[in-house]
Design a protein around this nucleic acid. Structure first.
Lengths: 238, 238
DNA sequence: CGAGTAATTGAACCCGCTCAACTATCGTGG
DNA sequence: CCACGATAGTTGAGCGGGTTCAATTACTCG
């Protein structure tokens, strides 16, 4: 979990900027600008669903997405929340392997996959940068497997709060974290129910580890305690 | 889960062969042969532990490894089992992010990381192939997140058996699957306990979905039923 | 300010865990 | 080849963390 913040930057690649800097011809650059223009999308919008033909690669400019896989009866596992600078759909697969929806209003760039794949071949070093970004996603996925397979509810919530705090890396005074996703999204990310998420947040508040001004704004009052809890180092394990 | 078999091959890269075919000089090829010679390792051997300095990239020639992350109190999550053709340690991180141990006797090739990274830069298309392999690992990790976060014990066992069967893709008559890992390893891979694994296998046997000749040899008698169960499509959910 | 949604809280239940006893398997040496 | 010990796997009984179902409270946004 500590390693996450350190390598987080590796996952962010500015395609438009990168392509423009890599000595592509003027025509190509203009093309990119046209294709990669920023588009706005409302909260709740579905970008694509698991199993759809993967026609585009997306880049988040601002806002937040949720990626998830679902079982036929509706059970849902959110595999990640994507914020500015992250990409999706860049697996070399023909079909999307997960669904993507906007949690907030989102601005994003969209590139046709065929175009994108040509870019990967033509721009030296791009494949390697994508490899770095994908490796980092894989690392996050492995952390999440440990969380889902072996951590208690309290440890999961603590891990989640630390993760949120790290990726904002906002050091403005007390660690105030903005939580754009619903309790239900948090639950589906942590393999819990909405009710358990709520109860565990209440318990963390009760022991003085956090404060809840509104449901979407959480202050980390005792980061050390949260980190210990997240790492599974507290015996009674809350 | 279906996609797994289809894209599995993408995860396998013969480094020695690849380097030899990519027009490297004779001296370089000889060098690779020396560095990448096959080494044998006994069952139970630890290749490296989480947090060790990542000095080598490994390639499994035969046998099976387990990769895992652990919490301070000993709770363990196995993130994957690696068989012939798979690589490990090729994240571009300075430290290993998980531990690796031999489940069976294992033959493997070992490449110094510095050497390997030069190879990635020098061999055209290698970065892209590694990207494909890593993307496939990521896909598997996302499947596993769904399993760990949302599937019941019975569904997890069924998913595991189908996965084992797929990766061997042995179509010799009835679907006989060899299970080289212990019940405890299976449990730590599926986020369960050894006892629950044993009980669920017994239940699958009882309903005629599988047969257990020895603990390490399982016959899939009703693959369709197992697949439905694995996909979460059976109401009473066993 | 009021309606509708999201979040919290309470009570009972249940799936998978824990602890424990037992059985099968495998390697090893007589 | 068999007897033995050690390890791995199975089975049973009871418990508990997290879920389910339901009611209440807090936000949000016209």
């Amino acid at each position: 979990m500590q390693a996450q913040a350190a390598t987080k930057a590796a996952a962010k690649i500015d395609l438009a900027g990168l392509a423009a800097c890599q000595g592509l011809a003027q025509r190509a650059r203009t093309h990119i600008a046209a294709i990669g223009s920023v588009q706005r999308v409302d909260q709740g919008t579905t970008l694509f669903s698991e199993g759809d033909r993967a026609e585009y690669v997306y880049e988040v400019v601002s806002g937040m997405l949720r990626l998830y896989k679902a079982l036929p009866d509706g059970r849902r596992q959110i595999t990640g929340f994507l914020s500015a600078g992250h990409h999706l759909g860049l697996s070399l697969n023909d079909l999307y392997l997960y669904s993507a929806e906007a949690i907030t209003e989102v601005n994003l760039r969209r590139y046709p996959r065929a175009w994108f794949e040509r870019l990967v071949d033509e721009v030296p070093g791009l494949a390697r940068r994508l490899l770095a970004a994908t490796s980092d996603e894989l690392r996050a996925a492995q952390d999440q497997m440990l969380l889902l397979g072996r951590k208690t509810a309290g440890e999961r919530i603590a891990s989640f709060l630390i993760m949120l705090s790290d990726q904002h890396s906002n050091v403005r005074g007390a660690d105030k974290v903005h939580v754009p996703m619903s309790r239900s999204d948090i639950a589906d990310y942590l393999g819990l129910t909405m009710e358990t998420v709520s109860r565990m947040l209440a318990k963390l508040k009760q022991i003085g580890a956090i404060a809840l001004s509104t449901p979407a704004r959480i202050s980390l009052l005792d980061r050390g305690q949260l980190e210990d809890l997240a790492a599974g180092e507290l015996e009674p394990a809350l």
